[in-house]
Structures are given as C-alpha cells and as structure tokens.
Simulated assay, not measured.
Amino acid sequence: MGTSASHADLATAQQIPADVLVIGGGPAGTWAAIAAAAQGARVVLADKGFCGTSGATAPAGTGLWHVDPDGDARAHAKASRYALGGELAEPAWMDRVLAQTWDNVARLQEWGYPFPTDAAGRLRCNSLQGPEYMRLMRRQAKAAGVRILDHSPALELLRDAQGTVAGAYGLRRAQGDAWAVQAGAVVLATGGCAFLSKALGCDLLTGDGALMAAEAGARLSGMEFSNAYGLGPAFSSVTKSLFYNWASFYDAAGQPIAGAGSARGRGIIA
C-alpha cells in the first residue's frame, strides 16, 4: 500500500480491517457510520478527540432545517434560503437535505432525544442541544456495531497500487502507538478550519480532513462562500445564534439598533 508514512510505522501499527472508515466523530461522522453499519458494513470511526464530546456541536448545539413535507412549506423555505444565499444553492441538494433532515429527526425521536414541546404540546424540532444530541449519537453508533477509536487522530490517507484511497493511518494517543485501517470506502467528516475563531468547540477544527483530501488529489469547491457569520460578544466564545434570539442590540453610544436581531437582522449589526 503506497503512502508517505514510514514502513516501520505501518509495520508496527495496529492493523484494523473495515469496509468503511469514517474520520471524524461529530454529527456528520456518526450519522455516516450508523448509516453504513445499517447496510451491513464493518465500520471504524476514528476521532482525534472523544466521539460525542469533541467538535463544534457537542458543547453547544445546532439548528435544524426541519420543514413539514405537506403543503407548500418546503417551497417557501427553499425560496427564502435561495435568496439569502445569493442564489448560489442547488435546489436538488436542498430537497435532499430537507428530506434527510425530516427522516433523521424521526429517528432521533425513536431513539429518545428529548425534544421540547410548545404551548400546544407539539414537539419543537428546529434545534438540537449538543451534549444530549452527541451523547445519543455515540450510543447509537456503538449499538449499531461501529468500532470507535477515540483520541486517535488520522495523519494521512493510504492509497493502493492504483492510487485509489484505501484507508488511513494515524496515532492512538492513549496507547502511545499507531493504527492503520484498510477500507473499501473512506468518509472524511472532520469539520472545517475554524480553530482561530475561538468559538466554542472549534479548537479541534484545524482542517485536517481538507488537507488530507487535497494531498490525495481531491478538488475543493465552494470553500470561499458563507451565508452568515455567527454572533458573539467580545467576552464570549459562544456564537450559536439561538442564545441571542432574546437579546437586544445597542450601538457604542447605548442606543438600540433598529432592526437588529439574531435570526434576522445580523446584516444590520454588521
């Protein structure tokens, strides 16, 4: 197997066979691992931290694009996002995200995620609290038979004689040795590159996966685009917008900023 890792390192690494290797243990990684295991695949998930507690979602939370498929609600939701995103989105991908989110939220309900209820007793499924969410995802991944390698950062992708990505190599920090996984498929779910932002949970987001993919010949697309930036007071590392839905915003002179808000009005603040 061709790689720049030394032969000595690979020779002494713990060899772990798998059908699917997932690198990264946040929401994307755990969902990918569970989905692959459900198809009967042998799945290994490697996380540089502790799957279920590391990454941007675990210490905070995440919003959900949870829109009922009945009626024209999804059409309105897509049109709104399409305009907000400068008409750069792909409608077909928006349909897939809406459908997958709807299905996954139903599975989270089955697994016992504690969605809150509104005044009418209906479940509110437009956001997830990180600690509860990722604790549940780790538990479900293990129940699905996924082998989790905690504190095991991947260093590089491995390739076969034809140059096809066929696994990865990394370290086991707790054991002080190395691991190598040969797999028929590799899923990179390592998050972005936001460690300099100082935002909550982003200290591990150092762009490892993007770098490994680029080294293997992957082409990156859309990396320069962002719909919106999160709000965060200078004294805080919390940029999750949900917390600021109840906030009032003032200018340096202490005067209220007309139209400013978290869900709407961030552009006015900027």
Rank of each mutant, 00 (worst) to 15 (best):
V186A: 06
Y244R: 03
M134W: 01
A216K: 10
Q182K: 09
D150C: 01
A247G: 04
G163F: 12
L211K: 14
L188W: 06
S236W: 00
K48D: 04
T3R: 08
T206W: 05
Q182P: 00
G259A: 01
W111S: 06
A168P: 02
G2C: 00
A210C: 00
G26T: 04
A58T: 10
G71N: 06
G112E: 07
A56T: 10
A75W: 08
G254V: 10
D47H: 07
A180M: 12
G265V: 02
I148D: 04
A8W: 03
L155E: 14
M94T: 12
P17A: 15
L204N: 13
M1F: 11
G222D: 06
L231E: 09
R264E: 12
L231M: 11
A32Y: 11
Q15A: 14
G209L: 05
D177C: 08
L64G: 06
R122W: 05
M223W: 14
A28K: 09
G201N: 05
T164N: 12
T3K: 01
L171G: 01
E90V: 14
T206E: 14
A161L: 03
T3F: 01
A260K: 04
A143L: 11
L171N: 12
L136V: 01
L123S: 09
R147N: 04
G176E: 04
A35L: 10
T206V: 15
G49Y: 02
G145C: 10
A33I: 08
G201S: 05
Y244Q: 02
A79I: 03
A216N: 08
K142P: 00
Q129W: 10
I34A: 01
A234L: 07
P256A: 09
A83D: 13
T53R: 13
G201I: 03
R138H: 05
A46K: 02
W102V: 03
T190L: 10
R159N: 02
G192C: 13
D251Y: 05
E110R: 13
R74N: 11
I23Q: 02
T117I: 11
I269K: 02
F235Y: 12
I34M: 12
A141W: 02
R172H: 09
A252D: 11
A99I: 00
K142T: 15
A32N: 03
A253Y: 04
T12C: 08
S6P: 00
S236T: 02
R124C: 08
L98Y: 13
G24F: 06
I269P: 04
P131S: 08
I148T: 06
S236A: 15
L220W: 09
A199Y: 09
A214F: 04
M134L: 15
P69A: 11
G176Y: 06
P116N: 01
A270Y: 12
G201T: 01
R107Y: 06
A180F: 00
R42A: 14
K48M: 04
Y250Q: 05
N126H: 13
E156D: 11
P91H: 09
A83G: 02
H76C: 08
S152I: 05
F243W: 13
G267K: 07
G25Q: 12
Q100L: 15
L157A: 08
G163K: 02
R74K: 13
L98N: 06
G230W: 03
E224L: 12
A199C: 07
G2H: 09
I148S: 00
